[in-house]
């Protein structure tokens, strides 16, 4: 029920020169949530604080509560009633204000937003964190940061890595299909991320680990090979996506950089997020935006494959561009993009 590929990377000294490590326990597969009582008993958790929203509470929250009781623990529960829960100050604040000061652990029941909020609560409360996934929608399960809006800016806030990640395919397979496709999109992004990691390594000499790149590549392949099953909620397909997402999050932890899981396609998604925060323009699921970013990037790559770069021309062009306001240089294009 653990992810076999990840077992190797416990304090693993790699040929790349780094030690790859991820200490969290991952429990994945049909019936995985049944392990929760053992998890709580082993850690002596008696009073977990559970965070969910109405949908995720129905999907797995109720079950989580009764499994806590089965372990002899008495949970306190906060269910967000927000119709469209966003990861920002008020939702994090509200969860905080419902926090049970007697709690000895924090359990997030959900995926993207709930996970981001719960990780912050666990970090501030300095309590162990457990996530019960309800949708394989993004790769933040294994990460120690939360993607949130703070002071009007979308940031990656250091929060808390989960001690235990539970992905019960019986629960995950019942998630909205678009959320599963979002998870697949976040995996497809890895085509571009790994490609750009290698390119950057060759061009700028940036650190690169072939072994971790291969790990992510094979997880991605498994997702793509099974992708069609997502539409019929096939457990193997759902599990491949969930495990791929967890593994991608762990991969970033292994190498200490986000390279294995994010490249230009994520930046494209990020621009949509920034515009959404600033102007209220539409924001889709993270992985759906990344999927669009991936296809766009792949098309751009196909176009550059056809060119032969000319160093003299490139230098000349570059010298002009760097001083041309309104082009991608002088006036930071970021600010320009926000203004559109």
């Amino acid at each position: 029920m653990a992810i076999p590929e990840m077992e190797k990377y416990r304090n693993y000294t790699c040929a790349c020169g780094k030690t790859h490590d991820f200490s969290g326990e991952v429990i994945s597969g049909s019936g995985a949530i049944g392990e929760l009582p053992r998890v709580l008993r082993e850690r002596g958790i008696r009073r977990p604080f559970i965070i969910a929203d109405e949908n995720t509470y129905a999907a797995a929250g109720k079950q989580t509560v009764s499994l806590c009781r089965e372990a002899g623990a008495e949970p306190s529960v906060f269910i967000s009633r927000e119709k469209k829960l966003e990861p920002e100050e008020s939702s994090v604040g509200l969860a905080m204000m419902h926090y049970d000061y007697a709690a000895d652990a924090c359990i997030g029941v959900g995926s993207g937003v709930i996970n981001d909020i719960s990780k912050i609560v666990a970090a501030v409360a300095d309590k162990p964190y457990i996530i019960v996934g309800t949708a394989p929608s993004m790769d933040g399960f294994a990460s120690a940061t939360s993607s949130v809006t703070r002071d009007g800016l979308k940031i990656s806030l250091p929060s808390k890595a989960a001690e235990v990640i539970i992905g019960d395919t019986d629960i995950l397979a019942a998630a909205p299909v678009r959320m599963m496709l979002s998870g697949l999109g976040d995996m497809l992004a890895k085509y571009v991320s790994i490609c750009e990691w290698r390119l950057a390594n060759r061009i700028t000499g940036e650190y690169y680990c072939p072994e971790i790149a291969e790990l992510v590549r094979s997880a991605l392949k498994k997702c793509v090979d099974n992708a069609d099953g997502l539409l019929r909620r096939d457990k193997a397909a759902v599990q491949a996506v969930f495990e791929g997402l967890v593994l991608s999050g762990a991969a970033m932890k292994y190498v200490g950089v986000s390279r294995p899981a994010s490249g230009m396609e994520h930046y494209i998604s990020h621009v949509f997020d920034m515009r959404g925060v600033e102007f209220g323009t539409p924001m889709d699921f993270h992985g759906i935006q990344c999927a669009v970013g991936t296809l766009t990037a792949v098309k751009l790559y196909e176009r550059i494959k056809k060119i032969t770069p000319d160093r003299e021309k490139a230098r000349a062009m570059w010298k002009i561009l760097i001083w041309l306001p309104g082009m991608s240089s002088c006036v930071p294009s970021l600010a320009a993009a926000r203004r559109i």
Partner: peptide
């Protein structure tokens, strides 16, 4: 174009920028 300045990674837009 904005992806060139968004964070610090060398991505495709940076490569295209270098090539003008």
């Amino acid at each position: 174009k904005a992806t060139k300045d968004i964070r610090d990674k060398y991505v495709l837009s940076r490569l295209l920028w270098d090539l003008g």
